[in-house]
Write a protein that binds this DNA or RNA. Structure first.
Lengths: 141, 141
DNA sequence: ATTCAGTTGCAAATAATTTGCATTTATAAT
DNA sequence: ATTATAAATGCAAATTATTTGCAACTGAAT
């Protein structure tokens, strides 16, 4: 019921596909690619179309309901937007999950940017590696 | 002549297309997309093929002659590898140029990662914004 | 000069994402 | 409840970025 209000507040209609996308992300509690989300939503709504997924991931990200992340392979990952505010991510190369970290490097570079006359708008900080369960050796591919 | 040795050291043949790619990146002194590089190399070698560009960007990046960077639109940018070592980038949304910054946030998160049992392998830190010449307002597109 | 692995051009294939359009649907107004 | 309508969806086709198979070519070692 909470999601319904969130969507309405942002002027978005409450549709089954949007509810399914959010459910999938809530259940997984990690960030997923559009394809992963599509596959999981299909188990809930067999007839969903991929373009509906893409349109909603984009729209809900722009409305602050989801947040997107571009990883170094050029694929976007999406997750629920954390209200707690700004944060960055660890991406596990073993299981593909991502976790949040609160540390943000921006305050440490502000002076250097000002000196260069650069006005920052966005930034990203992503750490790739292996999480506790996947270990330093990874799990192959 | 320096490049020729660099290529040979890495077991790569010295070809006109490789020389042209490096020349383009040296002249621009910034990071460019594969398409930009292709367009500029074509002015030197009209017959180059796009796949040759891609193969060499990938190969020379893996050999440490170039370095690649995935920006948040999902496009890779390539530049000459700076021997001076590890660094990160500012990407101007006005002119598309990128500059290096030396600050690296990794040392500040090491403890937090260790606590989470996460073993980092790679990381990226990119700041988007507008450089001195493009100003805070940007220049449209 | 000969050899041969490495490299290139070409064309076709992938993969990720976007778009146009007709149909459907959630919501607001009746 | 019914209706009107803008928003949302499904579908198919288009884009964009990148990759791959393969035959022809070329740099470098002999």
């Amino acid at each position: 019921m909470e999601l319904e209000n969130l969507l309405k507040q942002r002027g978005l209609k409450v549709t089954d596909q949007r509810k399914a996308i959010v459910k999938v992300l809530k259940d997984c509690n990690c960030m997923l690619s559009a394809r992963d989300i599509f596959d999981k939503v299909k188990q809930i709504i067999p007839g969903v179309n991929f373009s509906t997924i893409y349109r909603n991931l984009d729209l809900m990200s722009r409305k602050g309901i989801l947040c997107g992340l571009m990883v170094d392979t050029g694929v976007s990952l999406y997750g629920l937007h954390r209200e707690e505010g700004h944060h960055h991510h660890l991406v596990c190369k073993g299981c593909g999950r991502s976790m949040a970290i609160d540390y943000c490097p921006m305050s440490s570079v502000e002076k250097e940017l000002a000196k260069k006359g650069f006005s920052p708008t966005e930034h990203e900080f992503i750490v790739y590696g292996f999480c506790g369960s996947c270990g330093t050796s990874g799990r192959g591919e």
